[in-house]
Computed example of a mutant assay.
Amino acid sequence: MLEGKEMAKVTISDLYKSYGSVEVLKGINLHIEDGGFLVLVGPSGCGKSTLLNTIAGLEEITSGDIEIGKNSVAGLHPSKRNIAMVFQSYALYPNMTVSQNIGFGMEMKGIDKNEREISINKVAETLQISELLNRKPGQLSGGQRQRVAMGRAIVREPEVFLFDEPLSNLDAKLRIDMRTEIKRLHQRLGSTIIYVTHDQVEAMTLATKIAVLKDGCIQQFDTPYEIYNNPSNMFVANFMGAPAMNLIEGNVVMKNKDIEFEMKNNKGDVISLPIDDVKGLENYINKTVVFGIRPESINDLELSGKKTNKKLVEKEVEIDVVEPAGSDTYAIVEFGGKQVVTRLNGNSIVAAGEKVKLTFNLSQAVFFNIDTEERIR
């Protein structure tokens, strides 16, 4: 089994992939450390599954290189790359039992039956499917089938696991449960995993590193914390997070030698926020920029921790829409011609049309160039 085994790092260098004149991947550079969990995330058609398929060897690359460990695998047949892939479709043999499905690859390699059974039983115990070994796929739920598909991959002891949207066919609750199982499995095996999803919550939950793709290019490659709190551009800011980061247009002004950001509410009133430590913003005086702030950074006094944070600014706003969500209450207000989501305490009693005081946590604010959409640093 894989426990305690050092897995292989993966290095992708200047990778391009074209179909005829259509360029799908445009100069991808990534490095995944031994035992890392990389999630490739982005909207449909961004190239994330194509990138995974090039790592697997299912797609030939146009140029560049892919290394697993210290060896280049560019041009190498998939069977010689020592990788295992888990698909969203499970791809189980319907006429074989769970045990036979898990052990099929080992049987094809001529591994002794007793050795196969020992490995199958260990994997089944790890995935908590021991009682299912004599059943056939048609007798299993979606979550159980996915566990079997994962077991078939694990038993091969590959250097790298590749997951292609493995949870997309499951219902919402089962997705959350299986997400936890995959996280636990990674912690237990210490395996190197590259995982494709369009679900940014899945990406944030599982990854040690995230690569956000758009139109075949990497927009940002970093830890979940940096991706969420310090997005490199407006696409990443808007794509990562549920609800997404609020992006509000307004003007940078100088008042008494202090920099402020001014935005208007739906009645045309100017709301000013003091900005004292954003480097580069001094180059945008009297210019329009985009102010980015997460919903949880605009909240009521109970959540804000006002006494301990000097960068909280209190402003009176008019509530447009209220959306109760159990532990949180989301209130919609309007600034800069945009609907802005704020996150209040779940016990907050607010109503549409009501004026309330909310706090802006400016220590978590970011700014973007309105033309390039890149972050101002």
Rank of each mutant, 00 (worst) to 15 (best):
N361M: 01
L38G: 03
L127D: 05
Q128R: 15
D222A: 11
I176F: 15
I83S: 06
Y93K: 06
I248A: 11
D164K: 03
Y195F: 14
S304W: 02
L344K: 05
N246P: 14
I12A: 07
A172C: 04
L127R: 02
G105A: 03
E60D: 15
P137Y: 00
G35A: 03
D269S: 06
K306V: 15
T197E: 13
S304G: 08
P94K: 06
Q339D: 14
G353W: 09
G27C: 11
T359L: 07
L185E: 15
N233P: 09
V317R: 06
P43Y: 00
L362V: 13
T223M: 03
A124S: 05
F221R: 07
K279S: 06
Y228M: 02
D199Q: 09
E202I: 09
Q139R: 06
F104K: 04
N121E: 07
R375E: 09
L312N: 15
K48Y: 05
E226M: 11
D371Q: 13
P94E: 10
K5A: 15
E125V: 00
M96E: 09
A91L: 14
L358E: 10
R145P: 03
F161V: 03
E117A: 01
E115I: 11
G105P: 03
N345D: 14
G4M: 06
F104L: 04
E260I: 04
T205N: 02
E296M: 07
N238G: 15
I271P: 13
K267M: 12
Y330N: 13
L247K: 04
Y19W: 11
G326C: 10
K311V: 00
E374D: 15
N266G: 14
E159P: 13
F221N: 10
F335D: 02
L140M: 08
G142L: 03
Y93N: 10
